[in-house]
């Protein structure tokens, strides 16, 4: 019997529960031994617990140290703290790893995109330090620290080295924000000295956006402060086909939460209509983090095969399959490949 992993499952709300059930079906069929520990998160918790992220959920993740999360929604302007941001802060999940890779079945105008974004996940203007400093002036502090900048760069270089990547660029606006982005860039350059085998450089964020849409193939790995990372990772997701296939990992020292980056699509809740691929690909990232490469590769191969055949795919990629039918097709393909 293989090693049993205990994973916190956070189905979220809206279409989250049906997506997570489909993903669980696939992962459980891959041969990996996972005990799923279900916990609540999101809007449905508000009435029950008065918060989007109950303490019980936090304690469970603290115990298991790994979670797979479905989509959640943060209400705008209600004063409720985002469950996603709270999770990142409470567990100091400082590395948001967002791969953007072309999926063959999605026809895009580029031949190659294979970018790994490493977004710093805990600082910058996300430090939630905002004040109305007069009755007509609002201020938000952009907090960049040396250790926070150093460790995301170190994480990225180490990851790149372990995965055979060749080039890392730091994305910044240090020509204008000389203290904050300047510190981020200085830390990156300091870390780069430890990895002479990996080409490194830097690029100003606005130029990076233009270069990404003109010639995305030139980029390999990008390291970004939180806000630029938030924006550019979605831009990269758009380049490869949208958020429906965009996985994400939020990783700290010894704890990781894997999640799709799309919303909970509440209007489709219960219809089993939506594509679970983003959570599934996040699950594949999780399996690799758990060192279950064989299971990850089995799912990946089967998923691409099902997408290529187009017989059992969801509406967003031109099919009519339900969420669970698509998942079952992947399971069947894994069995056929065995």
């Amino acid at each position: 019997m293989s090693t049993q992993h205990v994973v916190t499952m956070l189905p979220g709300e809206g279409t989250g529960p049906e997506i997570c059930e489909a993903v669980r079906l696939v992962i459980d069929a891959s041969g990996v031994n996972i005990k799923w520990d279900y916990e609540d998160i999101g809007l449905d918790c508000l009435e029950k617990y008065g918060t989007l992220l109950p303490d019980k959920t936090i304690q469970n993740i603290a115990k298991n140290r790994v979670a797979l999360k479905g989509p959640t929604t943060t209400p705008i302007g209600t004063g409720h703290k985002s469950a996603n941001v709270t999770l990142r802060k409470v567990f100091d999940l400082y590395a948001n790893v967002r791969p953007a890779k072309l999926i063959p079945v999605l026809k895009r105008p580029w031949d190659k995109i294979d970018i790994i974004n490493f977004r710093e996940n805990t600082e910058d203007s996300y430090a939630a330090i905002e004040h109305m400093v007069s009755d007509e002036v609002a201020q938000c502090l952009k907090v960049i620290t040396w250790p926070g900048s150093y460790r995301i760069a170190d994480f990225a270089f180490k990851w790149a080295k372990a995965n055979g990547r060749k080039k890392i660029y730091c994305v910044h606006k240090a020509n204008i924000m000389k203290m904050t982005d300047g510190l981020f860039l200085d830390a990156f350059k300091e870390v780069a000295k430890k990895y002479p085998d990996i080409e490194s450089g830097d690029i100003i964020v606005d130029n990076c956006c233009m270069q990404l849409v003109r010639n995305p193939a030139q980029f390999d790995c990008l390291v970004l402060p939180n806000l630029y990372g938030d924006i550019l990772t979605d831009l990269c997701a758009g380049l490869v086909g949208g958020l429906g296939f965009a996985p994400g990992a939020n990783v700290g020292d010894g704890c990781a939460i894997f999640e799709a980056v799309h919303g909970s699509a509440p209007k489709y809740a219960g219809m089993k209509k939506v594509n679970p691929s983003a959570v599934l690909v996040s699950g594949i990232m999780m399996l690799r983090w758990l060192k279950e490469e064989a299971a990850a590769a089995r799912i990946e191969k089967a998923m691409f095969a099902v997408l290529d055949e187009r017989k059992h795919v969801t509406y967003d990629v031109g099919g009519t399959a339900k969420t669970d039918e698509y998942a079952q097709a992947i399971v069947d393909k894994m069995h056929a490949n065995a």
Binding site: F91, E123, A127, G252
Partner: peptide, 24 residues
């Protein structure tokens, strides 16, 4: 009290949490 925007008192503080020498 918060550090880098994360509340460190009162309540749960992850042992993993990076704290710098500047507290709000």
């Amino acid at each position: 009290i918060s550090n880098r925007g994360t509340k460190v008192w009162p309540g749960f503080v992850s042992p993993d949490l990076l704290q710098v020498n500047w507290y709000r």
